Structure formats: C-alpha cells, structure tokens
Simulated scan of single mutants.
Amino acid sequence: MNMYRRLSLPDYIIYGLLVVGILYRFLVNPGPLLIPLLVFGVIFLLYKFPPNRLQKQGRPVQHRTRTAERKKYEERERRKAHFRVIPGSKPDSDEEQPPKYH
C-alpha cells in the first residue's frame, strides 16, 4: 500500500471550501479566530524560548582527571567483600531437596 495517498477530487473540493470558509470568517469577524491563534502562539513561543528564570540552573561541569578516575577504581577494587559462611544451628541434611520455588 502506498504511504502517500493522493487526494481525490472530492477531497480537494472539501479542503478548498474549508479554506474559503476560514478566510471569509476571518475577514468578517477576526476576533473569534484571532484570540485563540494569539494564545497558542504565545504558548508555543514560551515553550520554545522559556524565560531565563524558568530554565534549569546550569551546574558547572566537573572534569575528572586521570588520577581521580584511578583513585575511584582503586577504591572500588579495595571494597570487594569476601563472603564467609556462618555455621547455622540447623542439622545438615543432604537428602532433603531444595524448596520448589527458590
């Protein structure tokens, strides 16, 4: 199926009448069309170009040096924990099966 469908003759007629109707309405009484257009225009401009007080305050970018990265890597390497098994009070039972949902 073609993604870009060509318009048929009735489509062109309907869209043409729609444009003529909007232009006529705007020329006769522009208030009802002008106010919503202005409101949407102001909202669009505020969205695209927000005032400075509404923009997020930029934080200075901290550049890491190689020594800081190496120090962080060494700290991470140092913190590796070795797990130890603490003997419990339950008797060891090898013939018991593990729980079904574990």
Score class of each variant (00 low, 15 high):
M1R: 08
M1K: 07
N2E: 14
N2F: 07
M3W: 06
M3R: 11
Y4H: 10
R5T: 13
R5G: 08
R5N: 08
R6G: 07
R6L: 15
R6S: 12
L7T: 05
L7H: 04
L7S: 08
L9F: 07
L9S: 06
L9I: 13
P10R: 02
P10T: 01
P10D: 01
D11Q: 05
D11A: 07
D11L: 02
Y12S: 02
Y12D: 03
I13Q: 02
I13W: 03
I13L: 05
I13H: 01
I14T: 05
I14K: 07
I14V: 13
I14P: 03
V20E: 02
V20L: 14
V20K: 02
G21E: 06
G21I: 06
I22W: 02
I22P: 01
L23Q: 05
Y24C: 06
Y24K: 09
R25F: 07
L27F: 09
N29L: 09
G31C: 04
G31P: 02
G31Q: 07
G31L: 14
P32F: 02
P32Q: 02
L33P: 03
L33G: 09
L33Y: 10
L34I: 08
L34W: 11
L34Q: 08
L34C: 08
L34R: 09
I35H: 05
I35Y: 11
I35V: 15
L38V: 12
V39F: 07
V39Q: 09
V39S: 06
F40E: 11
F40G: 12
F40I: 15
F40T: 14
G41R: 05
V42G: 06
V42T: 11
V42I: 15
F44N: 12
F44Y: 15
L45Y: 12
L45V: 14
L46N: 15
L46R: 14
Y47D: 10
Y47E: 12
K48S: 10
K48Y: 09
K48N: 12
K48I: 08
K48L: 13
K48D: 13
F49Y: 14
F49S: 10
P50Q: 09
P51N: 11
P51C: 06
P51I: 13
P51K: 10
L54H: 10
Q55F: 04
Q57A: 12
Q57P: 05
R59Q: 12
R59V: 10
Q62P: 00
Q62E: 13
Q62M: 06
Q62T: 11
H63F: 08
R64F: 12
R64P: 00
T65E: 01
R66M: 04
R66D: 07
T67C: 01
A68M: 06
E69K: 03
R70P: 00
K71W: 06
K71H: 04
E74C: 01
R76E: 04
R78T: 02
R79Q: 08
R79M: 04
A81I: 05
H82A: 01
V85G: 02
P87F: 00
G88Y: 01
G88T: 05
K90M: 08
P91T: 10
P91H: 07
D92G: 05
D92V: 13
S93W: 09
D94V: 11
D94Y: 13
E96W: 06
Q97Y: 13
Q97H: 12
P98G: 15
P98A: 15
K100D: 15
Y101H: 15
Y101W: 14
H102L: 15
